[in-house]
Structure formats: C-alpha cells, structure tokens
Write a protein that binds this DNA or RNA. Structure first.
Lengths: 231, 231
DNA sequence: TCCTGCATAAATGTATACATTCGGCGAGGC
DNA sequence: GCCTCGCCGAATGTATACATTTATGCAGGA
C-alpha cells in the first residue's frame, strides 16, 4: 500500500526535520503566494533575524529554492526572487498540453476505484477551497490532483518534469482568483476527467485533460499578459 | 544551479568564483565520469579533508548536485550518488524523442550560416575526441551540439528541460564507449542534420534528429540493461 | 562639471566550534 | 533464546566568528 511513486519532493506531511527545510518551505509559500514578488532581494541577514536563526540554514534554503527556479542566486550578490516571462508561461503550458494527456493514457488504466475516489475527494476539497476563498491551498490542491492522476504512468522523469511545471503554474494562477469562473469550470472539468477514467474511456479522458489545460492556459496567459503590461 | 538557458550549467565566462561552485563542478565531473559510481556515500568530513576546505562549501555543493539529480540527500543521513533506473533512461529518451525534433522545427529556421558553421565545428571536435579517446569531453560536446541546435526555438523552459535530459544521458553514455561504432554513426547523423538545416529542409532535419535519438536510445538502453544485470 | 581613484561599509562566502540526531552495540529482563 | 531498552559513537545540522568580495561615496584632479 506504500506509494513508492514519488508524490512530492519530500513527505512534508510530517513535522519538519531540519530548520533549512522549514525555512525553504516557508519562503516557497511566500513566493508562490505572491507575498514576495519577483525582483525582491532576499538578504540573508534580514531573513536570519526574522526567523531567529543563523544564516547557514538560510543559505541552504535559498539553494533549495534555486533548484525550483524560485530564486536566482548570483555569487557575492545575493538572491533575487525570479519571475516568469510571458514566453516561459506559454512554454510551460505547451509542455503540459504535450505531456499530460499522453501520460494520462498510460496512467489511467492502472487507477483503482479507491484512487479515483481519493482523486474525487481532492477535486471536491479544491471546490470547497474555492468557495471559502482559501486561495493558499488552491494551487497546491490543483497540482496534487494533476500529479496523482498521472502517478501510474511509470514514467518517473516525466512526472518529475510535470511536477515542476505544475509548481511554476501556481504563481500566475493566483492572478486567476478574480476571474474565478475559470476556476469553477476547471472544477467541472476535473470531475469530467474522473468520470471518463472510471468509465474506462481513456482516450476521451485524455482529450478532456488536453482541453482543460489548453483552456486554463489561454485564459491564464491572457491575464498574465495584462498583469505584466501593468508592471 | 540551473542552466541559464543556452550554454551549460555555468557559463564559465570567468574562472570559478566560489569554492562551493568549484567543488560542485569537480564532483559533477567525477560522477558523470563514473569515478563515483551510484550508491557511493559522500561523507562531508572526508570530502572536506580531501579538498582541504571546510564542510560548509561541501554541503552547498552537495545541495547544488541534488538539484541536478546527481546525488540524493537524506536529512541526517548524508548524501548518496544516485543511479538511473532502466525505466528512467527509457523515459528520458522518450522525452527527448518527443521534444527535440519539435524544437528543431522551431529553431532551425533561425540558425544563421555562422551558427551552422560553429555547430559543424562542434561536431568535428566531437569526432576528433572520439578518435583520440578523449572520453571526458564526449558527453559534454554531444550535449552542447544538441542544445545549440535548439537554441533559437524560443522555448526557454523546454530548453532547460532538454538540457537536464542531456546531462542525465551523459552518464550511461560512458558505457557506449566500447561500442563506438554507434558513436561514429552518431557523428555522421549529426553532420546529416546540419546539412539538412543548411538546405532549409527542416522537416527532414527534424525526422533525422528523431531517428538519431531513437537509434542512440535503443542502443544505449540495451547496453544499460546488460550493465544493470551485471551489477 | 565630470571623471578617476581609493577608502570605507555592507553583504556574501568560508572556517571553526558546538549541538543534535541517527544507528549500532551490549546489558538486562521476559 | 529472543526481544527491549538505553547508552555511546559518528556523522550531520546549526551557531558564531572571521575573511573576502562588491558596491558606494567622497576627495582630488583634469
């Protein structure tokens, strides 16, 4: 029953084991939430004092964040929160369109009824968070849904890549809160994908997933373009 | 440290600026060369003494290597050199087959004659290294050739991903040295791709690239399967 | 006025020293 | 005889202190 398939970088569900990991998670959340917008300089001394710890764990946390493309470290010049260019966002969605449906075709046949039920629970939790305005959990739930859907594709590297793409989608997704009718549509599309999977109509499920990503992508890119134009 | 977009992990425009980066590069080379085979434990104290430095830069170097999937760090349990499962290698080549030809279609029309000449120089250098047995430069030259070929696709995230895939190919590629007739075939295929690009027959170039990756992939996977069976 | 050059300050990078955690070994009990 | 509990050693994780690099500001001169 143990999911040997890598769900996430680290099983963060248990308590943090090291300070640097805790700091990394905290900063990651702040960046994904937009609390730390792109371009902000992260000074080690300030962060160390703020967290009440030494600079060493801060440095290691920043290195972990750089691995996720959340910050850019320049030697002797500190770390800066990175931003995604419009081109990058477009690229990310094109990659998702190209990769995810194909992986779904491989993974869906191996989804058990229990797993589909769990996915449905995730989707409903996502809907609940949508209504209560819990924006923080929004992107995370969406990412987990998409990843769990593809878990059984037996393509470990592809899943790692998709995981990275999904995480990068979380930041611009925050913009979409205002136009949350897109989000409700996403909700129904998630349900539809699950229904098609349970009915073992995998080709249609993949097509639906493709349409879902395309729709979210075009909507988000339009929004992102305007947001960038403002700044 | 994630590769900027073109070039390599670190554009060595200048000599190493920090010790941790130098250590990371050294360890990276040793791992890619097979000097540090998968499963080896990297103890910080031993490395620190070996390099004649403190443990702090060692730790940061290990974190950078973890970002490249070259080592796996477990909290309080040290770092271990990672290996690629057969499944991962297969996945990597399927991804390359899926991504690279498409990117070539986007990039090739923007390749100038000078750039094609540079690429040809790279290919010839690769051939020279093949004959003189300079195995160390082999994987690096191959990666640079493929990356430079796709440089103008205007798909930054895709290029980063392909860059990672290529680096991961470097390790199992070392196995291929013995059966270097595959490598000579790769050499001619590289030249053929360039010729088709210069003739502006982009579709054929992409098809050729696809066949090239597929051929190298199947050959390498067969070899890798036997190597894993031994160990 | 503008440019050059150095001195100063602030931030990062590294070394040393201390604290914490994990794994193994052996004594003790069931 | 086997299992459990607890101590001990080794390695990692973190704090403190020092060194190095980069950027800034001011003085001096053309």
């Amino acid at each position: 029953m143990s999911p040997a398939v890598p769900g996430r970088p680290a099983p963060d569900r248990l308590r943090h084991k090291t300070v640097s990991a805790a700091v990394a998670d905290s900063l990651r959340q702040q960046i994904l939430n937009g609390d730390l917008p792109p371009g902000v300089q992260l000074r080690q001394d300030a962060l160390a004092e703020e967290f009440g710890i030494s600079r060493i764990p801060i440095r290691e946390a920043l290195l972990q964040l750089e691995a996720s493309n959340l910050v850019k470290i320049m030697p002797h010049r500190g770390a800066v929160v990175t931003g995604l260019s419009l081109q990058e966002v477009e690229d990310i969605f094109q990659l998702r369109v190209q990769l995810e449906p194909q992986l779904l075709l491989l993974s869906a046949p191996h989804l058990s009824h229990d797993e589909i039920r769990d996915l449905d629970a995730l989707a409903q939790e996502y809907g609940a968070a949508l209504e209560t305005g819990e924006v923080l959990r929004w992107g995370d739930l969406n990412s987990r849904f998409h990843l769990d859907l593809l878990r059984h594709a037996n393509r470990p590297r592809s899943l790692t890549i998709v995981s990275g793409l999904l995480q990068d989608c979380e930041r611009p997704t925050r913009l979409q809160i205002s136009t949350s009718n897109d989000a409700t549509r996403a909700l129904s599309e998630h349900a539809q994908i699950l229904d098609l999977c349970e009915a073992r109509r995998f080709e249609e499920a993949a097509a639906c997933l493709r349409g879902h990503i395309e729709h979210v992508g075009t909507s988000l890119i339009a929004l992102y373009r305007r947001a960038l134009a403002r700044a």
